[in-house]
Amino acid sequence: MSSPLRREDVAHVARLARLTLSDAELDMFTEQLGQVLEHANDMASLDLEGVVATAHPFGLINVVRDDVVRPSLERDVVLAMAPDSQDHRFAVPRIMGESP
């Protein structure tokens, strides 16, 4: 579980996260993230075979609500938040690809 974190890994992650990093930031993050991941290697000392992840600390399950309509927001309020809108819709510059 050592962390062979490379500069290109950091660049790939930045693309996934929709962040642009300068060369200096790439270097800095490569080093700093490497440190955190290296610190995380101490977890390897525990025998975690068969341990299950905990979802809710107090074991809540089956939390549901009734299928009953509640008021929606006023459209004017909704669109007032939008950086750009047109025809009562949120406007964005062109979308380059189909939804995955």
Partner: peptide, 21 residues
């Protein structure tokens, strides 16, 4: 009657952005 995670109406063909919260 409502959406998966909120009480907005699950309706087809309403005016845009009127069934949102």
């Amino acid at each position: 009657a409502t959406k998966m995670f909120c009480g907005c109406a699950n309706s087809f063909g309403s005016e845009p952005n009127t069934s949102v919260c």
